[in-house]
Design a protein around this nucleic acid. Structure first.
Lengths: 226, 226
DNA sequence: ACTGGCAAAATTGTCCGACAATATTGCTGT
DNA sequence: ACAGCAATATTGTCGGACAATTTTGCCAGT
């Protein structure tokens, strides 16, 4: 095993920060101080700042001039806008996946990635559900066969929304979500595009309404209240 | 007028590169050498590299380890995937815009931004059409009122696709495109969501088919032809 | 105690120079 | 025309430097 391939360090920094944010180790709104992170990650400011740019473009962090980077905290409006978009992208993805279900390798991969969905027992923890949720949606996007779509999915900041509302998730809500996952999975595996589309939209609509029902304090205050 | 607000230089570099690429001053596939650009733009390598990361995340350039940045050249597959997505996003955007047409300020702004579409005379040049095309689609996304959607639109790399096929554009194709723009604009202004949706899809489908008809050499060779 | 205000400390924006690793170019002899 | 190799160009990453700006901590005054 070689040292490092001269130029993979940058990517590893990005990855480290990404998983730290996804995993909730840095919470929305938290400030990311360069000096702290450079010593913590053992990289120079140059690399860290390049990583910030990448994460910023992904929407995971945001940078305020002269104040640096902070973990993005979505406003209610942004969250709703994202759901509006997500509904279309997920529906498209589900339709494509259903069409692709005829292809054996794609189908096999998909079935393996989502197998946990068939487990009807309650989930062990909220964190476990959040991870499963990301895996499920990721699997659908992968099965869609559209690489660009999968990239765009990464920009929908699912994990940020979840991090902001995680505390309010109830077992009942989680149960509903997983039941819907199951319905979508079945539709895809049966190659039923219309059902996959409708199931995805229903799933997203319910999730959207749930998020919409959250109190203001879980969201970043919207700019310009006149 | 003050010097600069301490920290706007980075953004200006990004903007300079962006417009240079959009405007075709750097062509797809062209390599972007750091040393050249730092002296040309008068900034340090640090800033230039940060700009590269941003542009890369936007999909305008791509970076190969140890070879640096080059203007992105889309493969046929990527272009088709983007059209598939764009069809959904534009249709959504058009529906939302149609719904918003009832709002006077939004409507006024939209009408102003797309006024050129009513001009039925042939366009002065391909470049003029390309600019008009971006303005039109941008206007629809703006009128949608969904900020995230507008951001996503920027990631669809319309300008890259156009740069790759610009030479093959005929006056007839341009005419068709603008007629479709007109139809979409009318549907939006009349608040006819269904027509706006259908018009957008038709427009995108035709554009997709046209791009699909291009010969292989305008695209980047696809990886893995086994 | 509380508050406004100011100086000190922390932090960011930007530049520069350095050096190893890798890629590209150009020469050499055949 | 060409394989091989050396010279050169370019990227990846680091560390330091310094001005502009923000944040913090302290103090006087009411």
């Amino acid at each position: 095993m070689q040292k490092t391939t001269h130029g993979a360090k940058g990517e590893s920094v990005v990855q480290a920060l990404r998983t730290a944010i996804h995993g909730g180790r840095y919470v929305p709104g938290q400030r990311l101080v360069e000096a702290d992170l450079t010593s913590e990650l053992g990289v120079s400011r140059s690399l860290l700042r390049e990583a910030f740019r990448i994460l910023s473009a992904e929407g995971l962090i945001e940078t305020v001039p002269n104040r640096g980077a902070l973990v993005k905290r979505l406003s209610r409006r942004e969250a709703m806008e994202l759901f509006e978009i997500r509904m279309e992208l997920e529906a498209l993805s589900a339709r494509l996946a259903a069409k692709n279900a005829a292809s054996e390798p794609i189908r096999a991969r998909f079935e393996e990635e989502i197998c946990e969905v068939w487990d009807e027992s309650p989930r062990i923890s909220t964190a476990a559900y959040l991870a499963e949720n990301e895996r499920f949606h990721g699997a659908v996007f992968s099965a869609s066969g559209n690489g660009q779509l999968k990239v765009l999915n990464g920009q929908m900041r699912l994990s940020l929304i979840m991090a902001q509302i995680a505390n309010s998730l109830t077992a009942s809500e989680i149960g509903k979500s997983i039941n819907e996952h199951r319905a979508i999975a079945m539709a895809i595996l049966q190659g039923d595009e219309a059902a996959a589309d409708a199931g995805s939209r229903a799933h997203l609509a319910r999730a959207r309404d749930f998020v919409a029902s959250m109190p203001d304090n879980v969201f970043r205050a919207d700019p310009k209240p006149t």
